[in-house]
Amino acid sequence: MNVLVFAEQRDGKLKKASLEAMSVGRDLADATGGSAAAVVLGQGVAGLAEALGKAGAEKVFVGDDALFAQYSNDAYGLAVGKAAQVFGAEALLFSATAMGKDLAPKVTARLGIGLLSDVTSIVTEGGILFRRPIYAGKAFATLAPQTGKPFGLTLRPNVFPVKDSPKAGEAVSLDHGVVPGDIKAVVEKIITAQGELLDVAEANVIVSGGRGMKGPENYKILEELAREMGGAVGASRAAVDAGWISHSHQVGQTGKVVSPGLYIACGISGAIQHLAGMSSSKVIVAINKDPEAPIFKVATYGIVGDLFEVVPLFTQAVKAMKTGA
């Protein structure tokens, strides 16, 4: 099976999630006796082929053009579709990032193939099977592609490992054929949130705060802890609805469904809609003053206590460990 991976870059840097996808693509190609390639779009991005080669790409289709400097699903959709045709892709992989989720259906609809969202595990022995959470993780469905039919997948960030699997990573200039008039939905402006940390959908550590935070000003202490661990700040819906933090931080069934390596819930009770969004995290820490809070049922480690006492100490201890070690 020939596998094409869409490699996402921002400011000329590849996303970790794209290397994860590349590693999955390599495995899928090896298991089915095919080859794996990547497509990368942007301006001044040709140098990224090397890193993709290291993660398993034999070929890297590079669309280096001012038309791709700013993401648009029109231009990127056309170009990735073109790369898929040139390569003869039978499987098309995207990361389930904000961009991946916007782009993937544009491409698969163009190619007339099916798309499976948010895959969290893949089995290749004795037939290919994909597993994905539904109902925000309350259940998992296992599905198989139809024999001989090409398909697309988006892969949940942070669940697949990045593997070293050096291949040629031969850069091939993509004859994309995109013209300015193809861009129908035009980005006019980007407003970057001030001092914004990572997005919760991609972060490997999430420090989340709920109603127990008491007010917007207190998110500072979570930001400090998140910054110390290279993570992102999340929230429950109660905190979002109170207007303490923007909806893009909401974790849960009607927010983002996340699977980070470490999820730290501060002042969050653990309602079913919140648990649905985070209970597949590898390690969960709960900090709550109510020992009966349902969040403790899913916690790997729990501290029953006042978050305003615990969190600053936690930040200090992490800092001490980093400098002391």
């Binding site: 139809q146 403790f296 480690y301």
Partner: peptide, 21 residues
């Protein structure tokens, strides 16, 4: 016809009991 064939439905494995410090 669906693009993928459903093979199995499962609930997530229960999380092992945690440690309350």
């Amino acid at each position: 016809a669906p693009s993928f064939q459903l093979k199995k439905m499962e609930l997530p494995p229960p999380r092992p009991a945690g440690k309350i410090l």
